[in-house]
Computed example of a mutant assay.
Amino acid sequence: MKPKLSVVKIGGNIIENESALSDFLRDFAAMDGYKILVHGGGRTATRIADKLGVPAQMVGGRRITTRETLDVIVMVYGGLANKNIVSRLQGFDCNAIGLSGADGNTIVSDKRPVKDIDYGFAGDIKQVNATAIKVLLESRMTPVFCAITHNKEGQLLNTNADTIASEVAIAMSEHFETSLYYCFEKKGVLRSVEDDNSVIAHINTETYGQLRDQNVIADGMLPKMHNCFNALQRHVHKVYIGLPGMIVGKEKLFTTLTL
């Protein structure tokens, strides 16, 4: 039987909220078994970029990563956000190690090809080094990945944190029974965006198609759900979406995704 592994992704809504971040990190540190944390930090990066006079460029909700923007992202994701999280986890007796995809050659990406839009220095994941990550886990270290990968030719790349979490979970499923948690500001996938309690408790492949056709799942939730079902189809055990408290059972209302 494979040992269990939890891959948990948090976004800027948690990182930006001091109280929420502290509560989450305490709960994360208390999780049983092997675990990996993946974090973004786009809101902080946008705020600091603005202070530095680097304009944020967005198309369809996606960031255009210019060379100047990449510098800010590396500073914020790999430095400020990542090391703040790692140091605070150490305070909760969780032996965390902060990583980008370049560290240990853990996540290799290709620069996104230019089609209709040039996204700049954005990375599409090509390979995850599960062996290196497994070594860290078995050494009782908890990897904390920021949303930066590399192309193995000296270039860092801004990479979607949801996708990093999904691809890491997929790669680690060869060695572990892996569960993937997406923590955000809602209690789960909602049937009605106006009702925070209208959580859909369980979604499988069939009901996902129905909800998408009914436009219940739309807009920004679509790429997240794509990552979820891509992970499930590639041997991730289960995927959960909801508030951070779900990872230790404090929150009883969340969405579970299965095939």
Rank of each mutant, 00 (worst) to 15 (best):
T178C: 02
T178W: 02
T178A: 01
T178R: 01
T178P: 01
S179E: 08
L180Q: 04
L180V: 14
Y182C: 00
Y182L: 06
C183I: 03
C183Y: 00
F184S: 13
E185G: 01
E185P: 07
K186C: 12
K187D: 12
V189S: 10
V189T: 09
L190P: 14
L190W: 05
R191G: 09
V193T: 15
E194G: 02
D195H: 08
D196R: 14
D196T: 10
D196S: 13
N197Y: 09
S198K: 12
S198I: 00
S198N: 11
V199L: 02
V199I: 03
I200V: 07
A201T: 08
A201E: 15
A201S: 14
H202N: 07
H202Y: 10
H202I: 13
I203A: 09
I203C: 09
I203Q: 13
N204L: 04
N204D: 14
E206Q: 12
E206L: 15
T207C: 05
T207K: 14
Y208C: 02
Q210N: 09
L211A: 14
L211K: 05
L211E: 04
R212K: 15
R212V: 15
R212D: 13
R212P: 02
D213P: 03
D213Q: 11
Q214H: 12
Q214Y: 04
Q214N: 14
N215A: 12
N215M: 15
V216R: 02
V216F: 06
I217Q: 07
A218E: 13
D219P: 11
G220K: 13
G220H: 09
M221N: 11
M221A: 06
M221H: 13
L222E: 10
